[in-house]
Design a protein around this nucleic acid. Structure first.
Lengths: 146, 146
DNA sequence: TCCCTAATTGAAATTAATGTTCAATTTCAT
DNA sequence: ATGAAATTGAACATTAATTTCAATTAGGGA
């Protein structure tokens, strides 16, 4: 399934007339292999294990392309740092963020989504996208602290 | 009701040993009189009409205090600029943001809130706060563009 | 294969939002 | 009124993100 996503990117790159470079290829590959919710810094770090010469700018640029190609979305949580997550246009998920350990858990709830639409309709809005972020403490952290 | 909120701030200031200054007082007064969702820039602008010498730093500092006192909350929407809104600890509201004109509409839906708690519980989280932001187009902008 | 042009890169400079420093000023308890 | 402590604002520092630009690289065509 990585393969399929890689092809999507290659297709996108071809249409845009982008050239294939070692740097960009390894950034894309690393992103596609990764878990979601990487900050630019996170990804830069991972990528440097493969090629220590790759700079921040290239990571930024490639993440922009990934977002443009539809494979990633940029999200802003409360810490002010942008994070990129894998995008599957079919499904939308929301986030639970632990204020202690920073863990980010995804969830999806059709019932909540439906209610959101309803509320927006009532207020005359046509909704294109949304973010629902919940901040709190995960069970592990609550056990450890009491 | 501004009066009550002002007293809350004065109480908070007294407890912290803060002194009362012309600058801070007028920033607080301006914020309390204002509509919600002011950026630092917005508030600075408003305050300058009263006292053109007040600098950004003081506005930043005062907004931090307002947040600390519980009268304001800092929110980050997708444009990356922090906005401060009035906080009534009794009620929580979410946001509809028009991607065209930038209007921000508040709403509250107990049913959505209840479902959120439920989902979080199921995943072992104890939720402290949340943001639900919906982006789309308001009825006015849809009419104008079609 | 070797060019040639256009795309790409990375280091460094730039921007935008936010924070901090510090000398000068102001507040307020005494 | 006086002096310690808080406050201010201009300038400087920081952080995340973006842009610039000279040097490099990719890849289609001769």
């Amino acid at each position: 399934m990585d393969q399929k996503r890689l092809e999507v990117f290659q297709q996108f790159a071809a249409e845009k007339g982008l050239k294939s470079t070692r740097q960009r290829d390894s950034i894309v590959a690393t992103f596609l292999k990764s878990d979601a919710h990487l900050s630019v810094e996170d990804l830069h770090h991972l990528v440097q294990e493969v090629n220590p010469k790759i700079g921040y700018a290239t990571v930024y640029r490639t993440l922009k392309l990934l977002a443009e190609s539809g494979l990633a979305v940029e999200r802003k949580f409360d810490d002010g740092q942008a994070r990129y997550e894998h995008l599957d246009p079919e499904e939308h998920h929301d986030h639970l963020i632990c204020l202690d350990c920073g863990e980010i858990v995804e969830f999806e709830d059709k019932q909540i989504e439906a209610l959101q639409e309803e509320v927006a309709d009532r207020l005359g809005f046509h909704v294109v996208s949304h973010n629902l972020d919940m901040y709190g403490y995960c069970s592990k952290c609550r056990k450890e602290r009491g």
